[in-house]
């Protein structure tokens, strides 16, 4: 991680953001580093009944019950078969902790606003969870809109009526 910081060189623009890059299968993604709390290895999750396919279950994160989301499946790609090589990125969105299952975490990048391009409207299922794309050399980086990728149960819960 320190290496990444040194790499970014002396020029740091004010409107730049730090992004954590990760991959799911063959695709590269990134998300704002400020949402990331920690990165940990895969642990077996407890399955939640009647949950959406992409919710793998919940894990015990030092006493907190944290749901794990299979980002690949959430973005409409082939579901990951979770194994010891996979990584869980713990994110904090609106005071709620969630874990995102990804193939691997690769780098930390400095991204300025003018590098970000809008998501091309190609009717892809994953488009609703993306906040933009970045073209960096040969790579195409998709910026993940984390809160859009999370299950919506929390919001609905307030209106939820037990009867």
């Amino acid at each position: 991680m320190r290496a990444a910081h040194e790499d970014r060189g002396p020029v740091v623009r004010k409107d730049s953001r730090e992004m954590v890059t990760f991959c799911i299968g063959e695709q590269d993604f990134c998300m704002d580093i400020m949402t990331v709390r920690e990165i940990r290895g895969w642990t077996e999750a407890t399955v939640l009944p009647r949950a959406p396919d992409y919710v793998l279950g919940v894990i015990n994160l030092r006493g907190a019950v944290v749901p794990i989301i299979d980002l690949s499946s959430r973005l409409g790609l082939a579901p990951l078969e979770p194994g010891p090589r996979h990584v869980i990125v713990i994110v904090l969105i609106e005071q709620c902790l969630s874990g995102l299952l990804v193939s691997s975490v690769s780098d930390i990048l400095n991204v300025t606003e003018d590098e970000v391009q809008p998501v091309p409207n190609i009717g892809e299922a994953s488009a609703s969870c993306l906040a933009g794309v970045i073209s960096k050399g040969p790579r195409l980086l998709r910026i993940l809109d984390v809160s859009a990728a999370l299950p919506k149960t929390r919001a609905e819960e307030d209106e939820l009526c037990p009867a």
């Binding site: 919710v55 919940v58 907190a64 149960t153 929390r154 819960e157």
Partner: peptide, 22 residues
């Protein structure tokens, strides 16, 4: 469960067992 996820039908809450599993 509701703190980080939401209400699940038929489930009241979660707990952590001796082996650290939920």
């Amino acid at each position: 469960l509701e703190q980080n996820y939401g209400r699940v039908i038929g489930i009241a809450a979660a707990t952590i067992l001796g082996d650290g599993k939920i």
